[in-house]
Simulated assay, not measured.
Amino acid sequence: MSEDHATVRIESNKADTEQVDSVGTTAARSTGVQSVVVLLLPPIVGFDASIPPLLLGEACDDIGERLYDVTTVGLSTGAVATTSGYGWVAEAGLEAIADADTVIVPGTRFPPARSDGILSDDVAAALASRRPDARLVSICTGAFVLGAAGVLDGRRATTHWRYADDFRRLYPDVDLDESVLFVDDGDVLTSAGLAAGIDLCLHIIRRDHGAAVANRVARHCVVPPWREGGQAQFIEHRLPVEADRSTAPTQQWALSCLAEPLTVDRLAAHARMSSRTFIRRFRAETGRAPGAWLRERRLDLARQLLETTDLSVEVIAARSGLGSADNLRHHLRTELGMAPSAYRRTFRGV
């Protein structure tokens, strides 16, 4: 299977955890337009390289002003080879890295990093020239480049599950977890293979500018607005034929009635499954327990309402299914480190 084909999702032994693999949203990263460079090291995985310009390039504020200025960067300007046989034209050379707010490295088979655990002198110098406060991001096997640059040593990171053994051999000082979609370690973020780059870019937009902006981008790209970082990359065993019904329709139904009491038994009844079968199937499809998934979706809705309405905290808690204002405050502080009023000021400016 090539890196340009969809990742097979396998059940991880961490799928039963309640962990969300992010440091949580604290505040928008900065005001104004952020400079993002996408480092294209040949041969690049074309799909990976297309994700940041599309998603970050689509992110706009409420009056339609773009929030990110995305530039593709190569070893030189001109065509960059991809693993699929076509060329990608880089807009700038490596010197653009020095002024970037965020540097993103898509999947690549760049030989020194992938085979020897080192970088060519020009790439190493370019990454070393970045600003001290610049954020580093990798998609898929772009993590090999960050590993070779030494920025992942002692940190938790992820990459495409298929190349995890190679990564560990080359970069033993990195705490690699190939069972998750992405890892947010503050100023360094890494994603699993291919489509997980979409999840990570949406997470970055949400972290920088709030749920409403990220959801607009997701709607434009016709992708789910959320798949949490801790969701498993893949499913290890095929589900039995007799349990081949998906829980997806029940997930969509639950989203339409989050304010209502939604027990596992009620969800299972909607899916026409036993509670035991439903829980097993739900975990396999989402990597989350039903209760944890519901709590996250309710918090997502509460965040949207905080950003886009003047409703009181009490009303938002009721509409999102979190019950009481105290419960909303508790979950917002636990997950994001913010009170509702602070969250509203940060992402709405009121």
Rank of each mutant, 00 (worst) to 15 (best):
A96G: 05
A96T: 05
A96K: 11
I97G: 01
D101G: 12
D101A: 14
V103D: 14
V105M: 13
T108A: 00
A113N: 12
R114W: 00
G117I: 00
L119N: 13
V123I: 08
A124Q: 14
A126N: 02
L127W: 01
R130E: 05
R135E: 02
R135H: 04
A143N: 03
L146P: 15
L146C: 09
L146E: 00
A148M: 03
R156E: 14
R156L: 01
H160G: 03
H160C: 05
W161G: 06
D165L: 11
D165H: 14
D166C: 05
F167H: 12
R169W: 09
Y171S: 05
D173H: 15
D175E: 15
L176Y: 12
L176A: 10
D177H: 10
S179K: 04
V180I: 13
D184E: 12
D187S: 12
T190E: 03
S191Q: 00
G193R: 09
I198F: 10
C201F: 00
C201Q: 15
H209C: 05
G210N: 08
A211E: 12
A212C: 05
N215A: 12
N215Q: 06
R216C: 10
P224E: 15
P225H: 13
P225K: 03
W226K: 06
W226A: 12
R227V: 03
E228G: 14
E228K: 09
G229A: 09
G229C: 04
Q231S: 13
A232Q: 15
F234W: 09
E236V: 03
R238E: 14
